[in-house]
Design a protein around this nucleic acid. Structure first.
Length: 427
RNA sequence: GGUGGGGUGGCCGAGUGGCUAAAGGCAGCAGACUGUAAAUCUGCCGGGCUAACGCUCUACGUAGGUUCGAAUCCUACCCCCACCA
């Protein structure tokens, strides 16, 4: 009996000790979670950093840090609209030196749907690209699908080019889709107008883009604070619009800056039908008033010469479908111009596409063989030329960076352009 | 041997009296492409001259014929295919 009661006492004391231990453990857990939040916030701050390393005139070299890695700028970003750089394996894209790729909100929303991408682990795992990804908002589709959509202040109603169904995309929706996809950089939903757009239309698109920017930013902030993304941090970039009209471009940028700060600023609505000198003039006008410490992304540009012209005007990031589209269509970029791979003159040509190139295409296959692949419509041909073109632009960005860092950018750039443009076609 | 069908530009193929140097496709040649409705699209494509408009020559199996005019109708021949002996 005595033994039993003593045992009971011991058990009670053990219980008390256990409870106390539990309280201590809970407190420790709270402290740990707080520490974790602080740490991850600190990590988030580091996750969107841009470090300027050199400036030569307007040209800049820097390093942009995003959640999935660093990007050394200036840099060309291959476009992978449907979660794939057309025709290429991600490992091939990586071997070109590409540091970041694009995806498209509108197209991934239609197929397979952002929830499907999320269910498959987010866009990085989905497309097997573990480096940074930037998603375009679908704003460009407002422009390119002009025949299939209707714009109101609320948003854009698209007639799906896939099955004809109606799709309503608002700035909020575009932001949510990108959040669900899980890209490193989300773009604001904007209103792109054609390059020939008169002042009034350009102003409308520009002002609407600013209002839509507010709505994107509000939704993005809500998403970020209410439910931190399980897979990544994400930042939102605004887009300067205003067509070819200097006053509108200035107003657009000022509106964006006063809504900042931003981790990046994009220049949109160029290379959409305006003359080249006009595009360069827009960049010239913007360069002095763009915030220095923020990466600048010229959307949808460009051809090799445009890259250098842009870099010379202070642009850090570029994307363009031409590398892959021209590749699929049989046009290869060369230092001396461009080459129609399908051309009869390549029939018995033993040399590489580009003798100065160290890409997998140029170090392996002859022009004659590449022409043959196009003639018989073998997929490998358009893959190989796409690969070369991407490598060509990536390497051009890398060399520009090297030249900016060592101070020889200006003269190198002039000579490069003279050689590239001077010979014209058919190098 | 008989009957039927047919021979059109590098290839396939439409065309059955003038609007036909001849539809369309393929092949060939050249070009375009800038935040991807695109492995797509555009142009040329009998010869000669022309920057072009155009001019000219040659051409719908072969050779004749009818007709103001023929790839198209008639005659003969050559060849191909199918079926029947």
């Amino acid at each position: 009996m005595v033994i039993l009661s003593e045992a009971f006492v011991i058990l009670s004391e053990a219980f008390v000790i256990l409870s106390e231990a539990f309280v201590i453990l809970s407190e420790a857990f709270v402290i740990l979670s707080e520490a974790f939040v602080i740490l991850s916030e600190a990590k988030d701050r580091r996750v969107f950093e841009f470090r300027l390393e050199a400036e030569r005139g307007l040209a800049r070299a820097g390093t942009l840090t995003l959640p999935h890695g660093n990007i050394q700028t200036p840099a060309f970003m291959p476009v992978g609209t449907h979660g794939v750089v057309r025709g290429l394996h991600p490992a091939e894209v990586r071997r070109t030196g590409a540091q970041i790729v694009l995806g498209n909100t509108y197209h991934l929303h239609l197929r397979p749907g952002e929830e499907t991408v999320a269910a498959l682990g987010g866009i990085h795992r989905f497309m097997h690209w573990d480096r940074p990804i930037l998603t375009d908002s679908g704003g460009f589709q407002v422009f390119s699908l002009a025949g299939l959509r209707e714009i109101t202040e609320e948003g854009v109603t698209f007639r799906s080019h896939v099955d004809g169904s109606l799709r309503h995309i608002t700035p909020e929706k575009a932001t949510e889709i990108q959040w669900t996809l899980g890209s490193d950089v989300a773009m604001q939903f904007d209103h792109v107008v054609p390059g020939q757009a008169p002042w009034a239309l350009a102003e409308e698109g520009m002002e609407r883009s600013l209002r839509w920017l507010d709505r994107c930013a509000r939704r993005h902030a809500a998403l970020t604070s209410s439910r931190p993304h399980v897979l990544t941090s994400q930042t939102l970039w605004p887009i300067v619009q205003g067509g070819t009209h200097p006053d509108l471009r200035k107003r657009s940028l000022e509106g964006i800056v006063e809504r900042g700060p931003w981790t990046g600023i994009a220049i949109g609505g160029l290379s959409v039908g305006e003359a080249k000198p006009v595009m360069y003039q827009v960049l010239d006008d913007l360069a002095p008033i763009l915030p220095a410490g923020v990466p600048r992304y010229l959307m949808g540009v460009g051809f090799p010469a445009d890259l250098l012209e842009g870099i010379a005007r202070g642009v850090d990031l570029f994307d363009c479908v031409a590398a892959t589209r021209n590749g699929r269509h049989g046009t290869a970029w060369l230092p001396t111009g461009r080459l129609n791979v399908r051309g009869a003159k390549n029939r018995t040509s033993e040399g590489p596409l580009d003798p100065e190139c160290d890409c997998e295409t140029c170090t392996t296959f002859s022009r004659g063989y590449l022409r043959h692949l196009f003639v018989v419509e073998e997929i490998l041909g358009l893959r190989l030329v796409s690969l070369h073109n991407i490598h060509f632009l990536v390497r051009l960005g890398e060399e520009a960076r090297r030249r900016i860092l060592d101070g020889s950018f200006d003269s190198w750039q002039r000579e490069w352009l003279a050689r590239h443009n001077g010979n014209g076609d058919n190098a």
